[in-house]
Amino acid sequence: MSRLNALRSRFVDAPDSLGAKARARRWQWFAQRFPDLSEMSVIDLGGTAGAWLRAPVRPAHVQIVNLEKPPANLPPWLKADVADACDLPAAILGTKYDLVFSNAVIEHVGGHLRRQLFADAVHHLADRHWVQTPYRYFPVEPHFLFPGFQYLPIAARTSLLRRWPLVHTPTSDRDAARNIVMEVELLSITEMRHYFPSSQIRFERLAGLVKSVIAIRQG
């Protein structure tokens, strides 16, 4: 492992990294907010089976919706469907869940109209929800681990991505890098309040600064 890859691991990926500790605190906060979670049916918009298999909490049933094909041989309490969270199939829309969960997904769906469709799906599927997204104005962009990355022009971000070694999936291809850059649109607090007007908006902080924004509705 190179020194720079080791640095990314230290901050984000390793079990004792700052990112892992933040995720553990978030899971704890989530469990405290929904103390009957073990009895709930949860639909996770944009999540992964791996995240739930590693999670320190376990609902009665979790249904994952993701554009990527899930792994085989999932446990009985975990189900996964390949679908677009902004255009859900009738079978999912016709099912009522106890809770909608989404972690760092709404910033990836693509533009205001699709974010609104995503939020509409959250409100439709359950009376309770937990929707988290990285905060646009935190100094370090969390996907690319580069200070102020989100404020730069697309051309500059594309050029940086092709050379910056701390990204999760490096690429030297210009078109691929541009697609990755354009796929992430971080949200502000105002936008989250717009999409989730009846929710409590809470903040996850790092060094006193807002790092992520969470829309919570407990029913």
Rank of each mutant, 00 (worst) to 15 (best):
D98W: 10
A215V: 06
A121E: 13
L186P: 12
R136G: 09
N179F: 09
A121T: 14
D36V: 09
A83L: 06
Q116S: 11
R115H: 11
A31R: 04
F149N: 04
P165L: 08
Y97W: 13
G50L: 05
R174F: 07
D84T: 12
F11D: 03
A49E: 11
G219M: 13
D120I: 06
V12H: 04
H143P: 00
I43D: 08
A119S: 10
V109C: 13
L53K: 14
F138N: 11
V167I: 03
F11N: 00
L53V: 03
D120L: 04
T133V: 14
A90I: 12
I154S: 13
R193Y: 06
R193M: 11
L161P: 06
F146L: 05
V62G: 07
F30H: 07
N103M: 04
Y135A: 15
Q32V: 03
A72Y: 03
G219C: 11
V82W: 07
F34N: 06
D127E: 14
P59A: 11
V213S: 09
F101H: 11
L88M: 08
S38V: 15
D84W: 15
A6R: 14
Q200Y: 02
H123C: 10
A85D: 00
G148R: 02
F34Y: 14
W29T: 10
L161C: 04
P15H: 02
A155Q: 11
M40Q: 14
Y135I: 06
Y195K: 11
Y195S: 09
